[in-house]
């Protein structure tokens, strides 16, 4: 590994100015669990490494009533897994966090890192997409908020400009009678990277047994994490029925565009999207009924 020049900015501003100064030659280190592997395998050889780890105030989970949820970009995955704020309405986030890699990785890896690395299989993306999350970026040109849906461009590629950092993840408030479920399908168990990741968030109109709002997001089955919008539209406003859920699962599967790789064939992945979506919607429904 190396050599590189190493920086530890104390503030976001300092980090941004370093990014501006060193541009493409610089890489940001948050938890380091992806970056160090890439450097070790000599996939990337950055000349400058900027560790954000010493910047204070970017590690938080704030629950703010009507305004929703804000997560500091440097919050570790383990922090999310354990956060008391994520035990009810936003349980799907801690659920996904608990499925990400190993405990030793989760203790270092950050939510910002997981999203900015933009792996199609990133475990944190589907639940945050299904919760209609957005990310707050800051750079020389100032701050901007980008819906997560628009943040991912391709495998490893995002809308982040070379001089920008992600500082916060924002999730709108969750209405009553909402439940969410993330299911990760691996080569075996939940170990390793996702072969398929499915997040479903369902808001229920309890009186009429109608899907008031449905959001479905998928990981590892397209160049970026995606939403299954046709399936969402199919369910929204409709009376809940097993047949309809099955249909939505099929449509979700059609919306995915997986490839063959070492973790599974496209055909198997499409099938698992169907199976896991069906399960995730039903699981989310059950939770929605209970809250």
């Amino acid at each position: 590994m190396g050599p590189f020049e190493y920086f530890e900015p104390a503030t976001v501003e300092e980090a941004v100015s370093l990014l501006k100064k060193y541009g493409e030659g610089a890489k940001i280190l948050a938890g380091g669990t992806d970056l160090v592997v890439m450097m070790r395998e000599r996939e990337i050889k950055p000349r400058y490494v900027i560790n954000l780890g010493r910047i204070a105030g970017l590690n938080y989970v704030h629950l703010d009533g009507d305004k929703g949820l804000r997560i500091g970009a440097l919050t570790t995955i383990a922090g999310l897994e354990r956060a008391p704020e994520l035990k009810s309405s936003y349980r799907i986030i801690s659920q996904a966090a608990a499925r990400l890699a190993t405990i030793a990785i989760r203790n270092m890896a950050t939510i910002g890192g997981n999203l900015c690395n933009a792996a199609p299989s990133a475990d944190m993306a589907p639940p945050l997409l299904a919760l209609k999350g957005a990310v707050k970026l800051t750079g020389t040109a100032g701050e901007r908020i980008v819906p997560l849906e628009e943040f991912f461009i391709g495998p490893g590629v995002t809308t982040l400009k070379p001089d920008e950092l992600m500082i916060e993840i924002q999730v709108p408030a969750v209405p009553a009678h909402t439940g969410g479920m993330y299911l990760k399908h691996g080569v075996k168990g939940a170990a390793g990277l996702a072969v398929v990741g499915v997040a479903a968030v369902v808001t229920l109109d309890i009186r009429d047994s109608v899907f008031e709002e449905v959001d479905i997001a998928l990981g590892a089955v397209a160049p970026t994490p995606i939403r299954a919008k046709r399936a969402e539209a199919l369910l929204k406003g409709q009376k809940i029925s097993d047949g309809l859920i099955e249909e939505a699962a099929r449509v979700t599967s059609d919306e995915s565009s997986p490839i063959d790789d070492v973790r599974g064939s496209a055909e198997y992945r499409r099938e698992m999207v169907r199976v896991r979506t069906w399960e995730a919607i039903r699981g989310a429904l059950k939770l929605a009924k209970s809250v």
Binding site: Y6, E8, L29, G32, T33, V36, V37, V49, N51, G53, A78, A101, T102, I103, A104, I105, N107, M108
Partner: peptide, 24 residues
């Protein structure tokens, strides 16, 4: 970071020391 053989405790939390840069 896939095998755990290098795990140590950093501030009481388990981490894979092969993925932690020294200055971290």
């Amino acid at each position: 970071g896939d095998c755990g053989a290098c795990n140590v405790l950093l501030e009481g939390k388990v981490v894979s020391s092969c993925l932690v840069l020294a200055p971290q």
